[in-house]
Design a protein around this nucleic acid. Sequence first.
DNA 1: GCACTATATCACTATATAGTTATATTAGCA
DNA 2: TGCTAATATAACTATATAGTGATATAGTGC
Lengths: 117, 117
Amino acid sequence: MESLLGGAVASKPLSAHQLQVIADRFRALGEPTRLHILSALRGGEQNVTQLIEITGFGQANLSKHLQLLLRLGFVERRKEGVSTYYRLADADVLRLCEIMCGRLEKEVARQRKLFAT
Amino acid sequence: MESLLGGAVASKPLSAHQLQVIADRFRALGEPTRLHILSALRGGEQNVTQLIEITGFGQANLSKHLQLLLRLGFVERRKEGVSTYYRLADADVLRLCEIMCGRLEKEVARQRKLFAT
DNA sequence: GCACTATATCACTATATAGTTATATTAGCA
DNA sequence: TGCTAATATAACTATATAGTGATATAGTGC
């Protein structure tokens, strides 16, 4: 399993389409609302009504974001009667956020260093 | 070093500001143009003129994207005379893209499985 | 069937930003 | 000093999308 950007493809540049597909995934995580939803699913599956209560977002807005996250494979769902339960599709989101948060922590540490005399 | 989304903060929900800061970083990677630029820097530092040649993007457009990537810490730069050489700030971008590409590969494998009889 | 609830979708507005052209800034050189 | 080249910024247009209210769809019980 090799990454397109990092691995042995250094010689093989990415096609415009490949870049677009990857960018779409990152952009899906590039909205606070969607991160909030994903964060709310960390503890386990929730149906839409529960997510509305947890996050405070509007129903239509929430549903739209869930469809997008579903389409890009970040969440999966299970229908039970009239309810739909959403869950994180895998741990990748958590890993991705770990890296991003690590960056932020490094950044904060750098700032602190600048102001320390 | 703990991640905000994945680690021990499961009980402590993220503030709107924290979510925004993290989302900003993901959104920076959510544009094919910027991924192209970052990809072009995999082999080592390049100045803006070289990046124009490599990527074919307009100068102003490229410069604007570079400022954004710089501000969010994905690239660093070094001025030499009238030129500015940009480089990847660290390997995080590569690690992030590895995870995303891994997801895509899993997705493709799933598709293949569906069509295999 | 009808009523009710949960979720998805449609139509719309407002905002953000990618790309472009023109201009400003800055460094090196005659 | 003026001239040229490299990069950054400003102003603008066009497009994408987040959020919202209204509506459609689907399951459940009467």
